[in-house]
Each structure stands twice: as structure tokens, then as C-alpha cells.
């Protein structure tokens, strides 16, 4: 069994290995849908090449037709033919079933972790100077009010953290407060989870609305302590100092 079918299969397999395993060594991995599209293009190329003339068609499809017709077959090839003829309807049946069977998974959630703040919080700057005393006070307030969830190490692993979904933010992660301005933190601490817009799924957030309990001065100093403790700096739009 050699000929266009085997060569085609080798080309397809080689292309798959190239796209799936070799290409990611030099660039970002391709999405499965794109790999599928490229393989479909390669397959159409192979089919067009194989059907260009009557002789190439016979070279490509002849063995397949003879195999399926079963003429003069014995032993292993007869069994292989029967297996193919049985497997095809089974695959169709299985595909039908798996497409129709109701999903057991809960609805997918697209929660936006850092939604846009309301306009009144955009551009605010911390009115308190970054003195060692203010930072120290902020860290003390953080320890008292924030660390049960966000953790004494600013890593989102406080003793209360395992019970919450979504989990408390990890400030030592470069993807959280390092990406945000102080004004953004001021909004999130002041208004809490209930202050989030719909894309932030406020109904799931356990973040308290601290404006009910803490003066603004405490919130600004907590922000200072948080950045210092987590070894991060706030994002700014202008060059400072």
C-alpha cells in the first residue's frame, strides 16, 4: 500500500506536527481552530492534486474503492473492511449523541476583573504624602481591615480567602495593583464589591464597602501601605518626580 493516499497522510501528519509542536517553539501557539483551517487547506490541496487527471484519480482512489468493494478480499483485509463499515455508522451515531446530549456544565462566566471606574474616581491623586509615618499607618490599617482576606503577605492568601469566589486579589501579582492607578484602588476600597458595574458581577464579591466604616484618610493611607508592602508602584499617566 503505497501511493498518493499514504503520501497525503504523511503530508497531513507532518503539517499537524509542524503547526502544533514545532511552530510554538519560535512563536505563540496557534489556536486549534486555525490549525484545523490550515489542515483543511492542505487536505484540499492534496485532493485537487490527486484528482487532476483520470490516472491520478485512479492512483489515489482506486485502492480505496477496491478496499471498500471487498472484491476478492480474504483474511486481514476482509476484517479491516468490515471494521471500517461498522465504525462509520457508530461514529455518526456517537457524534449525533454528543452534539445533542445536554451540557452538565454551569454557564460560563466572563467576569471583568478590572472594569472601568465611574467618572468621579478618574484622575484623583493621593492627597497624603508618602512619608514613612503615613506608610506605616497604612500598613497597620491594612493588617487590621484587609489582611484577613488579602493576606498579611499581600498575596491574596488571608485566612478567610479560601471560602470566597472570586478569590481576593493578590497584590503581589504584577497583574493587579501594579496595573492600576491609586484612584482606581480608592474607588474599589471605598465602594467595595457592591460598587462594581454589571460586568464585574458585584453580586459575588465579598469586598466590603469601606466608605461606611473608614474615613477617606484611612483609605488613602491603606493604598500607600498596600503598594509598599506588595513591592509594587502605582501606574501613572505622567512622569512623576
Amino acid at each position: 500500500m503505497k501511493g498518493p493516499i499514504i503520501s497525503g497522510a504523511i503530508i497531513l501528519a507532518g503539517m499537524f506536527i509542524f503547526l502544533k509542536f514545532l511552530l510554538p517553539l519560535v512563536t505563540a501557539p496557534l489556536p486549534a481552530s486555525l490549525i484545523y483551517l490550515y489542515l483543511a487547506l492542505v487536505l484540499s490541496g492534496i485532493l485537487i492534486y490527486g484528482t487532476m487527471s483520470a490516472s491520478s484519480l485512479e492512483a489515489m482512489m482506486g485502492p480505496v474503492f477496491r478496499f471498500l468493494s471487498g472484491k476478492g478480499q480474504t483474511g486481514a483485509s476482509q476484517m479491516a473492511r468490515l471494521a471500517v463499515l461498522v465504525m462509520f455508522p457508530l461514529l455518526v451515531g456517537w457524534q449525533t449523541y454528543s452534539r445533542l446530549v445536554p451540557s452538565d456544565l454551569p454557564p460560563a462566566e466572563n467576569r471583568t476583573i478590572h472594569p472601568a471606574p465611574p467618572g468621579e474616581f478618574v484622575g484623583l491623586s493621593n492627597p497624603y504624602p508618602k512619608t514613612p509615618e503615613n506608610i506605616m499607618m497604612g500598613k497597620g490599617l491594612y493588617a487590621a481591615y484587609c489582611s484577613p482576606c488579602h493576606g498579611a503577605n499581600y498575596d491574596g492568601k488571608g485566612p478567610a480567602a479560601p471560602g470566597f469566589n472570586p478569590p481576593p486579589a493578590n497584590f503581589s501579582d504584577p497583574g493587579t495593583i501594579a496595573q492600576l492607578q491609586e484612584a482606581y484602588l480608592f474607588w474599589r476600597i471605598k465602594k467595595g464589591g457592591v460598587g462594581l458595574p454589571v460586568e464585574g458581577m458585584p453580586w459575588k464579591s465579598a469586598m466590603p464597602r469601606w466608605e461606611d466604616e473608614l474615613p477617606e484618610e484611612f483609605i488613602w493611607k491603606i493604598i500607600m501601605g498596600e503598594y509598599d508592602g506588595a513591592h509594587q508602584t502605582p501606574r501613572t499617566w505622567e512622569e512623576e518626580e
Binding site: 482506486g62 474503492f65 455518526v92 451515531g93 449525533t96 445533542l100 446530549v101
Partner: peptide, 29 residues
Amino acid sequence: IFGWVILGLVLATAFELVIVRKLRKGQAV
């Protein structure tokens, strides 16, 4: 769902029957 699965199986089997029959008569080759 099982009705649709049975329909899929019947259609796939019928498709096979037609193809094999045509091949055996030598129409397609």
C-alpha cells in the same frame, strides 16, 4: 436524542450500502 442517534445510524448505514453496491457493480471505478 436516541431517535436522532438511530436516524444518524440508519442514514450512515444506508449511505454505506449505496456506496458499496455501486462499487461492486463497478459504476464508480
